[in-house]
Design a protein around this nucleic acid. Structure first.
Lengths: 168, 168
DNA sequence: GCTGACCTTCACGTGAACGTCAAGGTTGTG
DNA sequence: CACAACCTTGACGTTCACGTGAAGGTCAGC
């Protein structure tokens, strides 16, 4: 293998808003709106004030979309989950410029805590979903019991609930 | 045990909208709105046109609230999930009046299919949520690796999170 | 340096999901 | 039957999450 060019020199390949929209499945308007309400800050602006997005912006936008579409969070809730845009940005900067190992560890620890909170939030939602699924399964079992009842006892008296319903 | 009064004679105890609101955690306005957009039909009306709700209405409203708050569905999606209010009502009626076992079985079968579809929808959402959780866990692992890297390197300076935390 | 495709910032419009009066009818209790 | 507390149907207001122009600046290719 020939020696790689140092990472610091590979241009980050910044994207303009339309490409980002295509990549993330969001509309340009939505992306601008998310910036408006503080969900993200584009990595840079061109001389002509064009928004320029980098890889981490794409990640973040995809995450936002997931939270919105898959998890069904409101943008306000998503804002809570990502809450710390400013702090994150500050930290990334400090991380890059800091040679202090302890500080680097602390910054990563902060990031970990944020991710842990996100995981906890997501798992709470999953738990509620699971409870709903269990409820639905219970309804399903109830219907099956009714069916079994029909098959089992020929009830000459059709009125309301024919099932005595023993605890299984 | 003294013989119970037949269930058919126990008055269903219909509730007015405010009590329903208190019981379900919804507002009266929301409940009326749900009726407006066809998510439910109150069991009855009083002589003076007061809405009167029975137990199954409560169940349904609680289910709607769960779908909205816990699962994060839009009312339109919820409408799809419950879609068949009219059919359901028709079926319940036919069920009560039908002595035909085969027909009763068919009606219950329909209900089962609906519940199965609900379960499938919920599980799909759960799967997407799980994927997101896994993503978050991956991010978390990534951060831990960074930490481990720092620890591995020459570092006489403890700080932040000292625990590598093996998966238990 | 011109053109067309892309971008910018306002700014108003829209559908969903209700909130909030207003004007009047209903119900239960004294 | 009087009266407060509840209910009804409009109908307009509000917040969220964008959509949709309008008016103008920017960028890449010729």
């Amino acid at each position: 293998m020939p020696p790689k060019i140092p990472i610091a020199l590979t241009e980050p390949a910044l994207l303009r808003i339309q490409d980002v929209a295509a990549d993330t499945g969001l509309t340009t308007r939505a992306i601008r709106y998310y910036e408006e309400i503080g969900l993200l800050e584009p990595a840079a602006r061109s001389d002509g004030a064009y928004r320029l997005f980098d890889g981490s912006d794409l990640e973040r936008l995809r995450f936002i979309r997931s939270l919105r579409d898959d998890a069904g969070f409101s943008l306000a809730q998503i804002g809570q989950l990502l809450e710390d845009e400013a702090a994150r940005e500050r930290n990334r900067l400090r991380f890059r410029t800091s040679g202090d190992q302890a500080e680097r560890r602390a910054l990563i620890g902060d990031a970990s805590k944020r991710v842990d909170r996100q995981i906890a939030t997501l798992e709470a939602k999953r738990a509620r979903l699971d409870a709903m699924i269990e409820d639905a399964r219970a309804r399903r079992r109830h219907l099956d019991e009714h069916l079994a009842n029909l098959d089992g006892g020929p009830d000459p008296h059709p009125g309301g609930h024919p099932a005595p319903e023993r605890g299984r």
